[in-house]
Simulated assay, not measured.
Amino acid sequence: MKSVLLATTLMIALAGSALAADGDLPEASSYNWSGGYVGGQIGYGFGGADYQYAGGDSYDYSHDPDGLLGGIYAGYSKQFANRLVLGVEADIAWGGLKDQTLAPGDGSYSAATRIDLTGSARLRLGYAIDRLLPYVSGGVAFARFSFDEYNQGDAYSSADESLVGWTLGVGTEYALTDNWTLRGEYRYADYGTHDFVTQPADEAYSTDITTHDIRLGVAYRF
C-alpha cells in the first residue's frame, strides 16, 4: 500500500508540474508524440516474496530479491490538441532478481527465489510539454519465478511458476531528436497470492510477490 501511495504521489506531482509549466509555453508544440516506437531498457529491480508453508511456519521463508534487468518495449501514442498523449505499450525484461535465506525454524533448510522474466501490457497517459512528456501508466503484469529449497546445501525440492498481476508506473520521456527519445521510469507490480506445490517433495506453498523497478530506456520513434 505504501508503494502505491508513493507512485500516486509522484504522478500527481508530475501532473502538477506539467500544468504549472503550461502557462509559459506557446499554444502549439513544435514536437508531436503521435506514432509508433520501439526501444531498449536497462534498470534495477527489487521486491518482496513471502512464502507460507501449508505444513507449519517453520518453513515460512521471506525473501527480498533484487538485481539488474534489461529488455525491450514497443508502443503507439496519439497526441491530441489539448496536449494529452494517450498510448498503449508492451514490454518484456530479463533479469536476475534473487535472494536466499535459511528456514526460520530449521537451520538445516534454506530456500532461494529467482525472478528471471517480467513483462506487461499497459495504457499510458501523458501531457506533452513540447519535447518533454511526463506520463503515468498502468495495466497487466506478468512474471516468471523459481523457488528452490535445499537441505544442508543439497537440492531438495523446487518449483517454476508464472504470475499474473497488475502494474502502475510513472515516468518522464524526452525527445533528444525527432526520432530518438530518452526516458526514466519507476514501476510497481503486485502479483497477488499464488499457490504452488514443489517437486519432488510435494510441499504446498502460498506466496505473495511484489516488485519495484527503476528503468532507463532509449527508443526510436517512427
Score class of each variant (00 low, 15 high):
residue 220 Y to G: 09
residue 47 G to R: 00
residue 89 E to T: 01
residue 94 W to C: 03
residue 168 L to N: 01
residue 177 T to W: 06
residue 137 S to K: 13
residue 35 G to Q: 09
residue 117 L to I: 04
residue 135 Y to W: 13
residue 40 G to P: 09
residue 159 A to C: 09
residue 176 L to K: 03
residue 177 T to Y: 04
residue 72 I to F: 14
residue 178 D to Y: 03
residue 211 T to E: 07
residue 65 P to N: 00
residue 97 L to W: 10
residue 66 D to Q: 12
residue 34 S to Y: 02
residue 53 Y to G: 05
residue 97 L to C: 13
residue 63 H to T: 04
residue 109 Y to L: 12
residue 153 G to D: 05
residue 117 L to C: 06
residue 190 D to A: 07
residue 201 A to S: 05
residue 99 D to C: 09
residue 159 A to K: 11
residue 143 A to E: 03
residue 56 G to S: 01
residue 24 D to C: 10
residue 186 Y to L: 07
residue 174 Y to F: 15
residue 133 L to Q: 01
residue 27 E to Q: 13
residue 49 A to F: 11
residue 160 D to A: 10
residue 195 D to W: 02
residue 80 F to E: 01
residue 125 L to N: 03
residue 59 Y to S: 13
residue 189 A to V: 00
residue 207 T to H: 03
residue 196 F to V: 01
residue 198 T to E: 08
residue 161 E to S: 05
residue 28 A to Q: 13
residue 59 Y to K: 04
residue 149 E to S: 14
residue 189 A to N: 04
residue 110 S to T: 02
residue 33 W to Q: 04
residue 192 G to E: 06
residue 53 Y to I: 09
residue 81 A to Q: 11
residue 200 P to T: 01
residue 44 Y to E: 08
residue 12 I to P: 11
residue 13 A to R: 07
residue 124 R to C: 04
residue 191 Y to S: 05
residue 196 F to T: 01
residue 146 S to H: 10
residue 174 Y to D: 02
residue 90 A to G: 15
residue 190 D to I: 00
residue 186 Y to F: 14
residue 62 S to K: 14
residue 99 D to L: 09
